[in-house]
Amino acid sequence: MLRFLNSFWFNFKEYIILSVLVIFSLFIISQNHSPAVQKVRAIAFGTFASVTSVVSDIFNIKSLKKENEQLRETNAKLMLQLSKLREAAIVNDELKEMLSLKDTSGFPLISASVVSKSFSRVQGTITLNVGSSDSVKVGMPVITDKGLVGIIYSVSSNYSIARTLQNVDLKITVKDERTRENGLMKWNGEKLVIINVPKTYQIKKGDRIVTSELSSLVPFPIPVGVAAENSNVETGIFNEIQVIPFVDFAKVENVFVLKTVASKEIDELELNFLKKFQ
């Protein structure tokens, strides 16, 4: 028996090692959400990000000049918009006061830089140089001046990883700014799409898509992109609408983390409401 095992090992050791490692990898895949794995991951990427941030800073200096010019241009445009918005804000405040509505704007922003990127076409993630010591928490939205980049997924003390919109595991409720129709947007490995859109919906090419108030991840509207192609599925009652994002994920370097997570109070309230009718 021992001789047989010995000869078996000698003849097939490459395959045995491969099989053992593949089985172990599959086991690890199944353990992804366990707290122990999350903790090890937070320590590992925190340590690694502290090194990559140095390299990243060196390369960012080159692009700073170009970015500075763009920012100046954006600043001028914003200044013009601001004067218009001030007028609108005054009217808005008066109207809100008259209707006794709560102010939901004015969330603080945490400035951050991207220290490394993982751009597989299906699992886009970016590592940011802010972490729990900067009050970053899992679930906070990451934005740029153009729109939504992603959602914080894992946090260590000084660094955090965010899933970008080009990640198959991130699904966000969005709405058409013009028609106010809601839908679920996700990355299908190829493009950003709003899925299961009823054929009766009036979403047209060129419509601005923003995050919906219905979203449990982003509590108020943030620009996402523009509606592009309508897939016009022949069978069934639903369509798919392609969304071209405002943010170029390959070029994003400086971002803001929106210091808000979807309200637990709202979640609990909605859960109790559902339980009541079950």
Binding site: S25, L26, F27, I28, I29, S30, Q31, N32, V37, V40, R41, A44, F45, F48, A49, S116, S118, S120, Q123, T125, T127, Y153, S154, I161, R163, D169
Partner: peptide, 8 residues
Amino acid sequence: LVTGSLLG
């Protein structure tokens, strides 16, 4: 571990 992709 360091990139945040699905572990495994």
